[in-house]
């Protein structure tokens, strides 16, 4: 086993999860210019929905996975409809405050319903590892990477090839003109929330299988995925994926140099550095003014 290979493998695995969550932030921002800070909680809900389905109702795991993604898509659509849409014409601060309130509400709700104890999908035996280029990677971890790749490919096909996917890009480019050519932009926005939430749910379930579940699990992941989004250039879909992999790698390689207790702080430091020096992201999306405006 090689330490470097192992750290890189761990970085890619963590980065995959961050990417699944980051996509929701960046797609919503791309259209509405607003950061949905309740997104991490959808990730948490996804994990719990699948957990309850699999453990309480004994639904096969693959089915539980898909049903949970669908449920979270519905939750995302409801959140947009009830919490954000009525505020679309208000100041930028209003939906931001609503998002934070919603995030606290969903965490409390999860605490109430499922309790504070840490839960896990695992049945006991840790799946055995494979030696891949010197890194030990378990079946579960391989599944995380494979699932992420499949979901990204599906997303790419959707955005590139389907009519609704094109309408989504057009709406992100210019919402007003999108309306002029007859695109139902409300429907596009709902779709974006549905897709983003389903992907976040997938991330939550994968982490639930690999590690464990708790009602506050959406908080740190939220910050990391948001950082990934900023690194990749907020609003830029594939930038968020690259940003997520980078964060995963930097975090895991970073603990080679600093005590692993500081691992979660690395993303914060990157976030602050990016916001000060390069708020438009490494791909320089030219949307610097957007992210600055969030602070107004």
């Amino acid at each position: 086993m090689s330490i470097v290979a192992q750290l890189i493998a761990n970085g890619i695995i963590a980065g995959s999860i961050y990417a699944l969550v980051a996509l929701g932030y960046t797609m919503v921002y791309g259209i509405l210019k607003f950061i949905n800070f309740a997104h991490g909680e959808v990730y948490m809900l996804g994990a719990y929905f699948a957990y309850v389905l699999a453990k309480v109702y004994h639904v096969p795991i693959v089915a539980a996975f898909i049903i949970s993604m669908i449920l979270c898509a519905i939750v995302g659509v409801i959140i947009e409809r009830v919490a954000y849409r009525p505020l679309r014409k208000s100041t930028r601060l209003a939906p931001l405050i609503t998002a934070i309130a919603l995030s606290i509400f969903l965490q409390s709700l999860a605490l109430l319903v499922w309790g504070s104890e840490i839960r896990t999908f695992r049945t006991g035996e840790i799946s055995k590892g494979h030696n891949i280029l010197g890194a030990i990677v378990t079946d579960t971890q391989l599944m995380i990477i494979a699932t992420t790749i499949v979901l990204m490919l599906l997303l790419w096909l959707f955005i590139k090839k389907t009519k609704l996917g094109k309408a989504m890009r057009a709406t992100a480019d210019n919402l007003e003109v999108a309306k002029l050519i007859g695109i139902n932009t409300d429907r596009v926005i709902a779709t974006v929330f549905a897709i983003g939430s389903a992907l976040a749910a997938a991330g939550g379930i994968l982490i639930g299988i690999e590690q464990n579940l708790e009602p506050t699990m959406g908080v740190t992941i939220g910050i990391k995925a948001f950082t990934a989004t900023v690194v990749g250039g907020i609003g830029n879909i594939w930038g968020a994926v690259v940003g997520a992999l980078l964060i995963g790698l930097v975090e895991n390689i970073g603990i080679w140099f600093i005590p692993s207790g500081y691992k979660d702080a690395i993303a914060f430091v990157i976030l602050v550095i990016m916001l000060i020096f390069k708020p438009s992201g490494i791909f320089g999306s030219g949307r610097e003014e957007d992210i600055r405006a969030q602070g107004e």
């Binding site: 094109k166 309408a167 890009r169 480019d173 003109v177 999108a178 002029l180 050519i181 695109i183």
Partner: peptide
Amino acid sequence: ITFVPQGRSVFPSMTVRENLELGAYI
């Protein structure tokens, strides 16, 4: 009825062909 609004009203990150396709979105 179609409308070409004031200013640069293309979808900048999409290709020319995609822009034209979108004209027939409905």
